[in-house]
Design a protein around this nucleic acid. Sequence first.
DNA 1: AATTAGTAAATGAACGTTTACTTACTAAAA
DNA 2: TTTTAGTAAGTAAACGTTCATTTACTAATT
Lengths: 204, 204
Amino acid sequence: MRPRNIEKEESIRAVALKIIQEEGLENLSMQKLAKAANVSPRTIYIKYENKEDLLIKLFIDEVLGAYEAAVLENFDENMEFSAGVKRLWQNSFRYFRHNRQAFTLMQYGKSSPLLNKAFRERDIQEGQFFAPIHRFLARHASAGTIQHFPFQVHRALLFAPLFDLINEYIEHSDRPAQPITDELLLDCCQTVISGMLIKTNKHQ
Amino acid sequence: MRPRNIEKEESIRAVALKIIQEEGLENLSMQKLAKAANVSPRTIYIKYENKEDLLIKLFIDEVLGAYEAAVLENFDENMEFSAGVKRLWQNSFRYFRHNRQAFTLMQYGKSSPLLNKAFRERDIQEGQFFAPIHRFLARHASAGTIQHFPFQVHRALLFAPLFDLINEYIEHSDRPAQPITDELLLDCCQTVISGMLIKTNKHQ
DNA sequence: AATTAGTAAATGAACGTTTACTTACTAAAA
DNA sequence: TTTTAGTAAGTAAACGTTCATTTACTAATT
């Protein structure tokens, strides 16, 4: 039996991410991908059922899975609130700054119906994907450190600004001035945290 | 001279938005649109140069322009900070709750290279589009009510969570339980505001 | 050690369909 | 009669996908 060439499989994935970043998801075609990855179109169909399958696997494995691993590095659900959130911000920024392709596809996940479907198909709830963060927030809400909110609301308040800022960073990365610095990001993180904290020592 | 039929033009736009919301931007084709709008494909090309032109005009006129008008209703750049931000949140939520098609296309604007291009092509900077908000924030930063940040950073901190929450609202709108209520939104808005405010009467 | 059978990997060329867009024409008003 | 709006029926090119075949290797048999 002929052994499969792992390089080809990796090339397909890498080139797909590259095309999506450079030309957009809507300009990724199987034939263009095959040519750019130096592979026959048919080869892609040996490794993936169809285009949808390829995109979903790319999204889950290369983007969601890889991001989950990166964001939880040195994070512990028992951390103090402020330290924990800062760690998550740091990890996210560090990951996406060096993996812009992943960030681009992640953004598509918010608009494309296909990628939205990916969550449900694989039965991956955000609660499962980011379970430690989920528990971290639930614990601090119970302890009275922060307000009680549904998880999605906590996520919106704590991390939506971060993604906007990363997007801004990436858009400015090939321009002369970069407004988004590590220091600024830390300031922003502190701002977000201080809004969330319940101030027990304050009148009213 | 034969007068143009305004109904057809409106039908084209309305049906395009509808298809984008129901099937996604990537599934909008000129032929499908023509058939659904009960119009010949050529008719679309009388009114729009090409598909790109159609999408950009849809995006600018029906989404950005309409949103700008809605968000600034009863907003005055001289308002007190907290009241101003709350008004902007309220207006945004009210607008998108009743114009989900606009929200869907707006989300595509964050990933699609084509729609990103739309801003630059028409020379519409966000500063122009939302000039009163820009001045509102600059004034409060100068007055020391809030921290000094670039506009994009203010926007990320104040409004990125809102868009996430609206997205959550829309995704749950045809399910039994709706976690996002007006009251919750006001709570979130207050949280965001209190993070931004500089507390002059506080130790450290 | 040499030969052969079997198998999955990989391919180039093509399939039928859909794409964005046009051509050649008619309808309707100035 | 001139001008424009609108259409039905196209176009070539690109699309996702498949066919028939070859390649590269393993394992069994000589």
